[in-house]
Simulated assay, not measured.
Amino acid sequence: MTTDLDRATVEEAYARWAPVYDVVFGAVFEAGRKAATKAAEKIGGRILEFGVGTGIALPNYKRSNRFVGVDISEPMLQKARERVKKEGLPHVEGLVLMDGAHMGFADNSFDVVMAQFVITVVPQPEETLDEMARVLKPGGEIILVNHLGAEDGPRAVFEKWFARKARKLGWRPEFQFARLRNWAVRNGTVDLPIKRDVALGMYTLVRFRKRTQAEIASASESVALAG
């Protein structure tokens, strides 16, 4: 069974979620958001949040950081803009409607790229991760927090069964950590991901560090010598 989601399905799903997203998912995802924010602020600087949604995490960031948010859903972004205006968040540089697989930022634009509860629901996860790596500065980090599918056992069986029904909600419950690891190997500009459980294992925090050009060249040389 395919794990793909199309853009129209995702946009339609999140247009429906926009009015109630904070009420339905605010408390449920709070522990994951706090863990991701803490990890991002250890690096600090200019932060891109892909899938910023209603902007529910924006007030949690220190005002010393600079922040840009992008999302594929205009109704969700409208909620985020209202939040910025209401709460007065001067650290937010902009909130932009943008497809994650084709982001309009220059290379090496951000110190951190964040995606909270979103990488498993975008139409093109690997292409989106490629773009995250492209706009990230060397030495910076991609930080993801998400529910990830089980590798085996009863939960894995259920998630695969539920996947078809979940598509209508804009979800991909069977998305596993292995898919992120395989992307890192293929991409070649980031270290292998580091993961840890959050909220008693409900979610997984995943971090990728972007290599410097010298590190990429050294890795390529090692591969060539080994071959």
Rank of each mutant, 00 (worst) to 15 (best):
P90N: 15
H91C: 14
I143M: 01
R134W: 09
R81D: 06
F175K: 06
L129H: 04
L58A: 06
D71Y: 02
G170M: 03
Q176G: 15
K165L: 14
A166L: 13
F177T: 01
M98N: 09
S73G: 06
T120I: 10
V113R: 00
K79L: 10
P138M: 03
G69A: 04
A106P: 10
E126H: 12
D107K: 03
M114Y: 00
P59Y: 11
P173F: 12
A184P: 05
G140V: 08
A133V: 03
A166K: 11
F110E: 07
V113I: 00
H147P: 01
N65R: 02
H91L: 15
K62A: 09
H91V: 12
V145R: 00
E93K: 04
E82I: 10
R134A: 11
E74M: 13
A163N: 08
G94I: 12
D111L: 14
R83S: 03
G100I: 06
E131Q: 09
G139A: 03
E127L: 09
Q116N: 01
A150T: 04
R134N: 09
G104A: 15
V135H: 05
G149W: 04
P90E: 15
R155K: 12
L95G: 14
R164A: 11
K79R: 15
K168C: 08
L169D: 10
M114N: 00
Q78C: 02
E141R: 11
F177V: 05
A156S: 11
E131M: 02
I142G: 00
E127V: 04
I119K: 01
S109C: 02
G140Y: 03
T128P: 00
V92T: 14
G88W: 09
R172G: 12
E159P: 10
E93P: 04
K85F: 11
G100N: 03
V68A: 05
F110V: 09
V70Y: 08
V122M: 10
K160F: 14
A80H: 07
L180M: 08
E151D: 13
K85P: 05
P75D: 02
L58I: 10
F110H: 06
H147F: 04
E93V: 02
A115T: 02
D107A: 08
V96Y: 13
P154H: 11
Q116Y: 00
G69D: 04
G153F: 14
D152A: 14
V70F: 09
A166E: 07
N146P: 01
P125V: 01
S64N: 05
R164I: 09
V157A: 15
V118G: 02
L97C: 07
E141N: 11
H147W: 00
M132W: 07
A133N: 00
A101C: 14
G139Y: 05
R63N: 13
V96A: 08
F162K: 08
H147Q: 03
V68I: 11
D130S: 13
E127Q: 10
V118W: 02
F177D: 04
F110C: 07
N60W: 14
F177C: 04
Q116K: 00
A178C: 10
W171V: 03
E151L: 09
Y61I: 14
P90V: 15
G69R: 04
K79D: 05
R83M: 07
A163L: 03
D99N: 05
R66F: 14
V121C: 07
E126Q: 10
K168W: 12
D152N: 12
R181L: 04
H147R: 00
K165W: 12
